[in-house]
Design a protein around this nucleic acid. Sequence first.
DNA 1: CCGGTTGTTCAGCG
DNA 2: GCGCTGAACAACCG
Length: 242
Amino acid sequence: MPEGPSIIILKEEVQSFIGKKIVQVEGRSKLDIQRLSGQKIIDFKSWGKHFLICFKPYTVRIHLMLFGNYRINEQKAAVPQLRLIFNKGEINFYACSVKFIEESLYEVYDWSSDVMSDSWDPRTVELRLRNKPDMLVCDALLDQQIFTGVGNIIKNEVLFRTHIHPESRVGNIPRKKIKELIKEARNYSFDFLNWKKEYVLKKHWLAHTKVICPRCHMPFTKKYCGKTKRRSFFCENCQIKY
DNA sequence: CCGGTTGTTCAGCG
DNA sequence: GCGCTGAACAACCG
């Protein structure tokens, strides 16, 4: 379900609930979710994979993790973690993490690293990469403080597009190539968004889950790389190890 | 039925 | 206190 672009889609799907009052709250979250009853939704925001429901006194953070999903104006055969019922319509979140954020969002989040954000700033990303020269690039792409919103699919596709081997050390990658990587992380994320909206995301995967390199037709390597030990699909021939 | 996964946190250990 | 590992959580697909 959830890499950054998927959360953008969620945000777009719930726009009509902005300004609406929650009339009833259900769910198996152990938090005091009843405090949401009677609250009016001020806005929906996102920071990477975090979906933020903004109320005047606080914010609710939904994280869909690996298996989470949601239904708008319908339910599925499962107990929602959080169910928000309005006079007209409802939003249901399943298998997710729910948290209250009491602080101002601007104390908690820095949007300049969020690949989907209007405030995205490649210089922030470059600085944070420069501070982690020993990190493998496959881990850096999944580090939410560096590439906020990037997940495993985006990681694999961006590394393939930029011809970078996942086990390259960040500090060994030439600056020009780093800039390309940063730019492509955002660029591919928007391709992801558009393709997902059209239900053609998988069709456009060049590397993720692939067995043969579409560029040179050599077999791909599948390996659980880096500290994150997430699946990497890459071409030893086309992707340079720095 | 089992194995695997678009993710993250935390306990336990050396 | 650190870094590392594995467990835990959860739902769905093939």
